[in-house]
Write a protein that binds this DNA or RNA. Structure first.
Lengths: 216, 216
DNA sequence: ACTCGATTGAAACAAACGTTTAGAACAGAA
DNA sequence: TTCTGTTCTAAACGTTTGTTTCAATCGAGT
């Protein structure tokens, strides 16, 4: 009681390691089965820990979920878009934006993290607000700024819809890949590589907003 | 045993009415809470029936779910696209296709039915195959045929991606509406009416595939 | 060695889950 | 009426859920 806790550096490490394992396991299970479908027991089993671990480290299932989603969006690779060259022409930066977006959707650094993030976005829950603030909105505002440069004569609403058209194309392959495979067969869809899709979306979008064919 | 069942006309009606109420309730609850999140008790309570009703009429929860999804896609309005005038030019039929698609996503005849269908598409389960066969694939093949008319010089893969770009734009507003509201604020997104979005997607797509601005 | 706070383990908790059972209520046929 | 089959209800089934309890274990400070 009387003794102040002082700092516990190495203990904190092992603490983080335990929480980290739990978060990693939660990310996978939540991504695969959804919030309701994932059981605390399955998560703890995956983490090699006891059922009580969730309650001890996070309090309850919901808190664990929110923390897992927060951790997931940190694992996503936002950086390549951050160090974008601001001196390049807007049309080039738009192309880079699209290519980064398509790549992120097709081959995310952490598939289960991306899966979990997209799941939360499709059905926004308690973690959605944080996710939007720290992960989604920055990307959306970057695109909006680009479109303001490229189409200053258009209204805000027109640019908003243009942004949705671009994002909609990129998101399609992540949100509807499996259905597409059911429709056209898996080989047909798998034949579409990241580069092919990126090239297509860039060309489709450039034509759509009047940038014309991309110069070689 | 010895007596054959004969026909039971009016009894069959009341039977259908009971199953129908159950299916309607299941559609709403499953659409709102997902398969795992929806409880058999909640569905039966909504239908004003006993818990055992699900097991009596459908056997188990999963069968009820599949039947509810099948019923949901029947409630969706596929017809307006069916009686499409085949004599009109392909570019006009494409525009009609897009407008119908956008309208169906924005203001479906039965919101809960559409919600349930989209949910199953996002996370394909046991009902996905039927849904694709009877509901999704016909639409997709119609679009593919249109693009074959409009862009006969392109490869199958290019046309496939073009189709995905078009569908991706239409689906965006249904799959990511709530996130968009979180990003930009509800009023900004609600300001986009069905007609505005349809006009935009038509113009965006026409430009993208080289049809030029639509003639007045 | 001893103490004490942090962490883990096995077990159990009440509640909710999908499912089942046995019988009541009903309608038509004999 | 009596019988027969169908439909519905109340109650309970066994299992699984998220959560809690409490003692065992560990690690560092005195």
């Amino acid at each position: 009681m009387a003794t102040e806790p002082i700092d516990v550096p190495e203990l904190a490490e092992s603490n983080e390691s335990a929480k980290e394992r739990l978060l990693a396991a939660a990310e996978e299970i939540f991504a695969d089965y959804g919030y309701e479908g994932a059981s605390v027991r399955a998560i703890c089993h995956r983490a090699g820990m006891n059922v009580a671990a969730v309650n001890y480290h996070f309090g309850d299932k919901e808190t664990l979920y929110v923390e897992a989603v927060k951790r997931a969006h940190n694992c996503s690779d936002t950086k390549p878009v951050d160090d974008d060259d601001p001196t390049a022409p807007a049309s080039v930066r738009l192309e880079r934006f699209i290519r980064h977006m398509v790549a992120m959707m097709h081959e995310p650094a952490s598939p289960s993290a991306m899966k979990l993030v997209v799941r939360e976005m499709a059905d926004p829950g308690k973690a959605a607000a944080t996710l939007v603030d720290e992960f989604i909105r920055p990307i959306a505002f970057r695109l909006r700024a680009l479109l303001q440069e490229l189409q200053p004569h258009q209204t805000d609403e027109e640019r908003l819809m243009t942004g949705f058209s671009i994002i909609g194309q990129c998101l399609y392959y992540r949100q509807n890949r499996r259905v597409s495979e059911l429709i056209f067969g898996k080989p047909q869809v798998e034949a579409l590589t990241v580069d092919m899709v990126a090239d297509h979306v860039v060309r489709f979008t450039r034509n759509a907003i009047g940038l014309g064919e991309r110069p070689a």
